[in-house]
């Protein structure tokens, strides 16, 4: 009987700690939401060349629990504005968070499916990324692409993932995987050149 007050006290302490934890989680989720909004705004105001590094920075600065949401948000924003930043943005994000390939692939398939091959190339160049996770996401969101992606992944595995994949050159070099990278910087209008006919032969 003497221990009843002690037990009550212990229960109260546990309840207080639990409430605090719930409150902390709530605050953390709200902070993540605010941070995601900030990330969207910032990325929308950047030039293409600045996007990959900044996107990765937002992911790094986000706590583990909020990272999938952040990855999804930065990829959607970055590729929504600059589809050709797919390769470099993927590369930058996976460098700092290779475990976030699932939300990344999911976002790419949602917002920029045409850029998936460039993204896959960046994935294959990162040894830390789980290719099975990639196949799993593709299987759910783009089942028609599973066979092609699986073939590429299986081909890349024994090569240590050094083989590039991406768009495909046609027609004589048909089937050759190609990668396209474009680096754009702001520029004032340069002079325009004209042309004259140049007759060949005598």
């Amino acid at each position: 009987m003497k221990r009843i007050p002690q037990l009550i006290g212990l229960l109260c302490a546990c309840a207080v700690v639990s409430l605090r934890l719930v409150g902390a989680e709530g605050t953390s989720a709200a902070e993540t939401e605010a941070r995601i909004e900030q990330a969207r705004t910032v990325l929308n105001n950047l030039v293409l060349a600045e996007v990959p590094a900044q996107a990765a920075q937002f992911v790094v600065e986000t706590a583990n629990a909020g990272r999938p949401s952040m990855v999804r948000a930065v990829v959607e924003t970055a590729l929504g504005k600059y589809p050709t930043a797919a390769y470099s943005t993927t590369k930058a994000i996976l460098k700092v968070a290779p475990d976030q390939v699932e939300p990344l692939v999911s976002a790419v398939l949602t917002v920029a499916p045409k850029q998936f091959n460039a993204v896959l190339q960046a994935i294959l160049e990162n040894d830390q990324v789980s290719l099975d996770s990639v196949l799993q996401v593709v299987g759910v969101q783009a089942p028609d692409r599973v066979a092609a992606v699986k073939a590429i992944v299986e081909k890349a595995r024994p090569q240590g993932r050094t083989g590039g994949v991406g768009l495909t050159a046609t027609p004589l070099f048909s089937g050759t995987p190609v990668t396209v990278q474009q680096t754009t910087v702001p520029a004032t209008a340069p002079p325009k050149r004209g042309s004259n006919d140049y007759p060949l032969g005598p």
């Binding site: 030039v47 083989g163 590039g164 768009l167 190609v178 396209v180 474009q182 754009t184 910087v185 702001p186």
Partner: peptide, 20 residues
């Protein structure tokens, strides 16, 4: 070879096409 990609303006762009 024929490769189709995006026009990536505005600005100066360095287009790099890599072949396996």
């Amino acid at each position: 070879s024929e490769v189709q990609t995006d026009i990536n303006g505005p600005g100066d762009t360095m287009l790099t096409i890599g072949y396996s």
